[in-house]
Design a protein around this nucleic acid. Structure first.
Length: 549
DNA sequence: TGAAGTTTAA
């Protein structure tokens, strides 16, 4: 084994290839700066100054991809690889401290206190977002900022913090913070209350959500129709239309419902596939003097689409026309998408024609759906044509558009196109997300394109798209299947260091493969890591960090 | 997600 030190990199005849720099950055990031990371033997630096990409035996690389990687801006120093760290020095400084995973927010405050960093709202918000899955770090930072002379958190930083605590089910801590907001006065809005209710309902504590609505005026928020609608909607979206129905029953005499109220309930019952209850809501709606609108009918259409009952769908479409309430883009999107998923592509395209005839204008979501069903039917060229049509028509493609096309390209072995699309996104200033990269990473694992895999990982890092447990799992599985066990171990380790607990299947697969190839040492290390991951999880539970009451 | 629609899995 060799070691990837700085010298190793300057060994390449003084030429720094982007890929080498990428590798350096990845190694730095994955292994920490003080460690001397092992250089896996698949990295072979050419001695003649040619691109390391073409030098590898097992990586089949299309020449154009080689060119594409080569044409990427060549950084003149390693620091260029990490623009976030250069651009926002304090954010990075604190990030580094926060990554140490403290046992309590107080410990975090003490750790940050040592550094001389000046607070600002944007610093706080950036870090809260970055550590939104790590409430101890986020709350520690939040508290630390409060101790800084002359600094006061803004209303939305408070809301963000409340949401983070709710997301990690730290409801006791969350309520303490809410009480602080009450004491300070004027900080709680309907936005705050909606976050509280949403997180409670999300943790299946629907009655708690309802209770906080009952007391909403104590927090200085008025108990009106829009607040009630928000509660009902939250309960429906968090899987309990039943509680929403109860809430309506309880509050409707005190607070007058409006058409939104009924549409929310109707949609809730439709999603729960209880159409009889949904029709009852429609009756009640009419009794109260409200007419059903496109939204009401569209909810039913969606429900019948789920059941593939296209005769009923047609019947409702006719009824809508008759009642002077014609379908709109959303309605057409639902019908077309359902037909496409049911493999009735021809009928789906007829919907498109019908919509155009009716003078209804397609929007981005509609086109996304169209691109999706064409791709699923294997008609990638047609999908591409639609993409061009939308751009020409002034409809702006979004992340979903690109994610859909990238996924399709990967599924149909159009690797080159998939990578080109990623580049197109950059040109259009469309920010990629995890769903953009997942199919590309999977493809690289399958094809054993390790250098491009690293290129992508670095690209994600630069764009602040951080890996989640699902992505790590994907990498470990993919690399295991391709026999890249060294690398699978690197990602397994990184995952554990980030405090994620690998799934048992992932662990088992890796250990078995290591055993099969007689990599005893590696196997032992993975076993130790798994124990470590379990211990960390356990100690968090017992120390009350993840207390759930 | 916050009145309805679009990406996700062997």
């Amino acid at each position: 084994m060799r070691f990837a030190t700085r010298r190793t990199f300057s060994l390449c005849n003084g030429v720094i290839h982007p890929v080498n720099v990428v590798y350096h950055c990845i190694v730095k990031r994955f292994c920490g700066i003080n460690e001397s990371p092992e250089l896996p033997d698949w990295v072979k630096f050419p001695q003649d100054g040619s691109s390391p990409l073409t030098d590898s035996e097992d990586d089949f690389v299309l020449p154009s991809i080689v060119n594409w990687v080569r044409n990427q801006k060549e950084p003149d120093s390693e620091t260029r690889c990490l623009p976030n760290e250069v651009i926002d020095d304090s954010v990075d400084k604190i990030s580094r401290i926060l990554k140490n995973r403290f046992s309590s927010p107080v410990a975090v405050v003490q750790a940050i206190d040592g550094s001389d960093i000046s607070v600002s709202k944007s610093l706080v918000d950036k870090l809260l977002k970055r550590f939104s899955n790590d409430w101890v770090s986020a709350f520690g930072l939040f508290k630390w900022a409060n101790t800084q002379m002359g600094f006061k958190h803004s209303v939305d930083s408070y809301d963000l913090m409340v949401d983070i605590l709710g997301k990690s089910k730290q409801f006791d801590v969350m309520w303490e913070l809410v009480e602080e907001m009450v004491r300070l006065g004027g900080l709680i809005s309907l936005v705050t209350m909606s976050k509280i209710m949403r997180r409670l309902a999300g943790a299946s504590r629907w009655t708690d959500a309802m209770e906080s609505f009952r007391n909403i005026e104590r927090f200085g928020v008025s108990k009106d129709t829009s607040a009630m609608n928000m509660l009902l909607d939250t309960l429906c979206k968090e899987r309990s239309v039943e509680h929403a129905q109860l809430a309506l029953l309880e509050f409707k005499n005190e607070i007058p419902p409006d058409s939104h109220t009924f549409n929310i309930l109707m949609h809730g019952w439709c999603k729960a596939r209880q159409l009889d209850k949904a029709w009852l809501i429609m009756e009640e709606m009419e009794k109260c003097g409200f007419h059903p609108c496109v939204i009401s009918y569209t909810s039913f259409i969606e429900a019948y689409c789920c059941e593939k009952d296209f005769r009923k769908v047609d019947a409702i479409l006719d009824e809508m026309q008759a009642k002077g309430c014609p379908p709109n883009v959303v309605t057409y999107t639902i019908v077309m998408h359902a037909l496409g998923k049911a493999k009735e592509t021809r009928e789906a395209l007829e919907v498109y024609e019908r919509m155009k005839r009716s003078g209804c204008v397609p929007d981005t979501s509609f086109y996304n759906s169209l691109i999706y069903i064409l791709s699923k039917a294997g008609r990638l060229r047609d999908a591409r044509e639609i993409y061009e049509e939308m751009s020409k028509g002034g409809v702006i493609p979004n992340v979903t558009t690109y994610n859909t096309m990238i996924t399709a390209a990967c599924e149909h072995s159009q690797e080159e196109n998939a990578l080109k699309l990623l580049q197109e996104m950059e040109e259009c200033l469309c920010k990629p997300d995890l769903k953009t990269y997942a199919p590309l990473l999977k493809m690289c694992c399958k094809k054993k394109w390790i250098k491009i895999l690293f290129y992508l990982l670095n690209d994600m890092f630069k764009k602040d798209v951080s890996l989640d447990a699902g992505t790590y799992t994907l990498l470990v599985h993919g690399l295991c299947r391709s026999g890249k066990l060294d690398l699978a171990c690197v990602f397994f380790k990184e995952m554990v260091l980030k405090g994620m607990v690998p799934k048992y299947n992932t662990y088992k697969m890796l250990v078995e493969k290591l055993e099969m190839t007689n990599m005893e040492k590696g196997k032992e290390r993975i076993e130790q890591l798994m124990i470590q991951a379990k211990n960390v999880e356990q100690s968090r539970h017992s120390s009350g960090m993840y207390r759930v009451y």
